[in-house]
């Protein structure tokens, strides 16, 4: 920062060259010293030995001067944390690349998943690098996804049973992919790419989802004959 003499002359008593009073300087130092981890207001108080009102006043003023920012700590969303503006919250604080403002960015995840699914549908089978390149080329995302992020997304889609992980055999659809490379394809259900989990025999009937199955007996107060779940189910079906 370059300062003119005029500024120096006008400096308030007790302020340093950047125009901060001592308490603000102390608070800023305390916050800065925590780097990308940020610090909780209470800890600032302990570190600086300042009183509550002074700390809050300093924080307010530092915020106004755009020297610090408030960050959400994923570990403890209720506690106000501050960080110096030069830093970006670490993974421990933010929750990772998929978090924004302390919350999982489900919209973003869904959007990227949908894009991946479209690529996979178009190409039948592709590798991590393939998806990564497609994502980069598409320029729909406002950021450049890392390879790890692509892996995260693909893995989550495997867990959702929307795609399946396979190893390339070098034959047929895989002819352009080296043998043994991990690749992905859209999960198919009887030829139609519907994906998602199949409903099992047990899960298709009321008892499969019943919270009372352990107390349900043929002649007891909860029984198949008087079962409200069945009645509702059978009435909906017809």
């Amino acid at each position: 920062m370059s300062r003119s003499n005029a500024n120096l002359k006008r400096r308030r008593p007790g302020t340093d060259e950047s125009g901060l009073i001592d308490s603000e300087r102390a608070v800023l130092n305390s916050i800065k010293s925590k780097g990308n981890m940020g610090i909780w207001t209470r800890d600032i108080k302990l570190e600086t030995n300042l009183t509550d009102p002074v700390v809050s006043k300093s924080v307010k003023s530092l915020m106004a001067k755009n020297l610090i920012k408030e960050v959400v700590n994923i570990q403890n969303k209720g506690k106000k944390h501050y960080m110096s503006v030069e830093f970006e919250p670490s993974k421990e604080i933010s929750g990772g690349e998929w978090y924004s403002n302390g919350a999982l960015d489900k919209e973003l995840i869904k959007a990227v998943q949908d894009m991946c699914l479209r690529f996979l549908r178009a190409q039948k089978v592709t590798t991590i690098e393939g998806v990564h390149n497609d994502l980069k080329k598409s320029r729909v995302l406002t950021f450049e996804p890392s390879r790890e992020q692509v892996v995260d997304i693909l893995n989550s889609m495997v867990l959702d049973n929307n795609i399946i992980e396979v190893k390339s055999s070098g034959l047929g659809d895989y002819h352009s992919i080296p043998i043994g490379t991990v690749c992905y394809r859209v999960a198919s259900g009887a030829g139609v790419a519907k994906g998602g989990p199949k409903k099992g025999g047990f899960a298709s009937i009321p008892c499969g989802a019943c919270p009372r199955i352990s107390v349900c007996t043929p002649d007891g107060p909860i029984s198949p004959a008087t079962c409200v779940y069945y009645t509702k189910w059978l009435n909906v079906e017809f």
Binding site: S156, L159, D160, N161, P197, G200, G201, A203
Partner: peptide, 25 residues
Amino acid sequence: NEEVESLVMRRYGPEAYRIYRLLSK
């Protein structure tokens, strides 16, 4: 596995389904 997974899906929803499949794998 699929049968049990579908039960988890029905009883506890899609997030639990994902968690269960992760642990199962």
